[in-house]
Structures are given as structure tokens and as C-alpha cells.
Design a protein around this nucleic acid. Structure first.
Lengths: 239, 239
DNA sequence: TCTGATAAAAATGTATACAGGCGACAGCAT
DNA sequence: ATGCTGTCGCCTGTATACATTTTTATCAGA
């Protein structure tokens, strides 16, 4: 593994874990001391994490840990939903190959099995994996590098990911119900795409992203749930 | 001006001007020889231009000039339209301040004057400037840092910008008509936002982006028009 | 005590030296 | 003649030294 990649991963973990407080200026040398790599890979990592949205450039030079308001997270989720809606519409309009449809239907079936059974400890991690896979397949069906890239950037923010709040669901009583609704949306989107119903596919995918929004509100409510969301330490009252 | 910024600007110009052919691998040292700066700012510029979408990382290391298909440009425009549609909807739903409404209406009036009069040489550059300003104001009215940032990234691709094909319009006979239609869309979007009609504002902004799509087709048709579009040298038949 | 300037300390921006890896080319063997 | 292999060279990744700017702390004066 390259030093740059190692630095990126370490820094991201430190930021999301809340060990680097938001608003705090990150000096390159302090990171050098902390991680034991030279300044060059540190600088690389800082640039990439700024593009990723976790850091913000200070006008006079250097970087600071970015902080987010609840509204920012709401908007990030809405943005992802809008872009995934675009992907779903394009997939429907362009008509994916039978192979792609078969693949995503297979993914649906596996998700069905998980959702039907009662939730266990490792069931959720399997669900996260399959859920991510479903979203990946859907993006792939749109058949556009440009759209895929844009979505990649949108989900780079930790709480914008389709699976950001799944861990939270695990501790909530409504979790089964939410999962069932989400899975129904998955199924409906695939159906819409298969029938070339672009507008329906788009609307469904947008609405699907809003389960994350509901989960956000719940996560902010229950203090014990906050710790389960990656990057929750970055949230401040002020924008 | 910092060396890094100078390198970014120079490299971008070289790429968009077609002096660096698409697919060509960029060796750091060759750029050092060409621009007279050291490797460090060159590396910085390469990373940033990759994030911007002009370069792509080669798996074995280094960067190559990216190339785009007509479909890529279509999708980039569609993506921008979708995100600007989101911004318009949010602006409508959230209700911008009277000051913001007044500001964008002032912009509208100035555009009206330009569009009414016959097109001159510098009229178009003034139009480009006001058009950019209109889109900026609209994004600002959405009141979301996250959405604004995402749109910034979407318009970073040279031909995805709202003004990418305005230069082309100048040499086409239909230019006046297109400008009138676009201006009508501008006006309608502002009206929709003012009336809190989110769905209408969104739909209008999406459709508005599609004038760029039509211009793209025309630009690809007329060979003499191709040279007026920045970054047209990056377009290849194969994806 | 507060304000201002000045100087020191630190941090970033830049240049360059060093090391490891990947690819190309040539030579040898089959 | 063709395929394999070893070596050479270029290129990227990394480390570090140097310069310039920014920040901070201290001290003098009002």
C-alpha cells in the first residue's frame, strides 16, 4: 500500500471518528508526527480529502476540518436522491441489457431473503453490502460514466451514502418496517426500469433516498444512535 | 500568483486548446520542461485536474488526458440540468429573500435588453457574463452549500457549463430565436420560484439545460462551429 | 490596561535528491 | 524466426531541505 493511500485512510478515520475536531486547522507537520509519513503524502491526502468534502481550504493556506449542519446533511441526501433518480430514469429510458436486469433481480432476491428473516447481528452488515451492491448496479444500468462519477462524488460525504443510517435502523424499533418499505422501493424501481417507465423510476429513487432523511431525524433524536453514524462528530449547530 | 495555480491554468489551457492530445500520457518532467516550474506544483495541478475531470489516473501511475464521447457531453449537460433543477426547486420551496428576488430580477432585465437588441460582437460576451451571473444567483437562492458545491463540480467539465455553447450560437442563424427561448425560460423560472411552484421551477430549469444539448448537436454538425467550443478537441468517436 | 509594532516561531509553498517499479529493448536460446 | 529473459532507462512515489508568508507572542508606548 502506498504511503499516500495509508495517509488518506488514516486521516479519514481520524476525522470521522471525531478525534480531529471540526473547525480545527490541520498542520501538516502535526500529521507527519502523528502518522509517521513525510509531508508529501500528507499534502496529497489533504488535497484529496478536500475534494472529498471532509476538509475545507483556508484562504491563507492550509486546511481545516469541515463541519456540517443538519441542513447540510439533508441537502446531501437530497442531492444523492436526485442524482440516483437521474440514473434510474436514464436506465429506464435507455433500456439496460437482459444480463443487467437479471443481475439486479438476483440482488433483489437476496435482499428479500434478508428482509424476510428476523434481523440478526450480522444480518445488517450483509444488508449493507447488498444494499450498496443494488445501488451500484442501478448506477451501472444508467450506462453513463459522467453520471456515475457525479454520484460517486455525492456519496463521498459520509452521511450521504445509501447505507449511512442503516446501522441506526438496527437499534430502532421501526427498523423492520423501514427495511420492508425500502425493499418495496427497490423492487418497484427495477420494475419501472424494466417497463421503461422513466418518470416513475426517477420518482421512486428520489423517494427512496428520503428514508435516509427520516433516519437522520431519528438518529439526531436518540443520543445513543448518534454514535452509530459515521462522521456524526462533524455536525454542529451553526452552519 | 502561486506556481501551482499558474500550472493549473496553463495545463488546462493546453488541454482545452487541444495541444495535449486526448489519451496522451502526461509525464511530469515533460510538463516541468514545458512550463518551467518544479515537479511539486505540477503534481498538485495534475491531482486537481483529475478531480476536475480533465485527466484520468492511469492504474500503473501517472495521468492521461481524458477523452469524451458525444454521449458523455449529453450526460454532463443532463446532469447539470438535473442539479440546477434541484436548486430551482429548493429555491422555490424555501422561499428566497426579497433581496435575492430583486437581484435576480435585475439580472433578468439586463438580459432582456441584450436579447431585444440585435446581436453584436461584444453583445455575446456580455450575454455570457450575465447568463453565468443568472445561474449563480439561482444556485445561491437554493441556499445550500452542498448543492452549490455539487453543481460547481458538474460544470467543471468545459462543455457542461451553461455558457459552453453560447459562442456557437453566435454563428448560427437560429441564434436569436434560441436566445429568446432561453430568456423566456429564465423569466419563467424566476416566476415559479417567486410563486413557490417547486415542481414547475425544477422542470423549467431542466428543460433550460437542454438548449445546450441542441446546441451541441449543431456544433458537432458544422465543422467551423466546433472550434468555438472549448475542449472540443477532447471529443472522440469511441467512448 | 489596551493598542500597536516588531520579531520570532511556525506553517505552507517550492525545489530537488533519492528509491523503487514498470516498461521497453536487446540479446540469447530454442 | 520466435519467444523468453535480463538489463537498462525513464517515470512516479517519497523524503527532505530551503524560502516565503502567516501567525503569534512579547514588549514598548500611550
Amino acid at each position: 500500500m502506498s504511503q499516500s493511500l495509508k495517509t488518506i485512510l488514516s486521516l479519514r478515520e481520524l476525522i470521522l471518528g471525531g478525534e480531529l475536531k471540526s473547525g480545527e486547522r490541520l498542520s501538516e507537520l502535526s500529521i507527519v508526527d502523528r502518522l509517521g509519513v513525510s509531508r508529501t503524502p500528507v499534502r496529497m491526502a489533504l488535497v484529496r480529502l478536500e475534494e472529498e468534502g471532509l476538509l475545507e481550504a483556508i484562504p491563507s493556506g492550509g486546511y481545516a476540518v469541515r463541519h456540517f449542519s443538519e441542513a447540510d446533511i439533508f441537502d446531501a441526501i437530497e442531492t444523492r436522491g436526485t442524482l440516483e433518480g437521474l440514473a434510474a430514469r436514464l436506465a429506464a429510458e435507455r433500456g439496460p441489457s437482459p444480463g443487467q436486469i437479471g443481475e439486479i433481480k438476483g440482488c433483489l432476491r437476496k435482499l428479500d431473503v434478508l428482509v424476510q428473516h428476523e434481523a440478526g447481528a450480522d444480518t445488517f452488515s450483509a444488508y449493507v453490502e447488498l444494499n450498496e451492491r443494488f445501488h451500484q448496479l442501478l448506477i451501472h444500468m444508467a450506462g453513463s460514466r459522467v453520471v456515475a462519477r457525479q454520484i460517486e462524488r455525492a456519496v463521498a460525504l459520509p452521511f450521504a451514502s445509501p447505507s449511512a443510517f442503516v446501522e441506526v435502523q438496527a437499534v430502532l424499533p421501526e427498523s423492520r418496517a423501514i427495511l420492508l418499505v425500502a425493499q418495496e422501493q427497490h423492487r418497484s424501481v427495477v420494475e419501472a426500469i424494466e417497463r421503461r417507465e422513466g418518470a416513475r423510476a426517477e420518482a421512486l429513487m428520489r423517494e427512496h433516498s428520503r428514508v435516509a432523511h427520516r433516519n437522520l431525524v431519528m438518529a439526531l433524536g436518540h443520543q445513543n444512535a448518534r454514535d452509530l453514524v459515521p462522521g456524526m462528530a462533524l455536525i454542529r449547530q451553526s452552519a
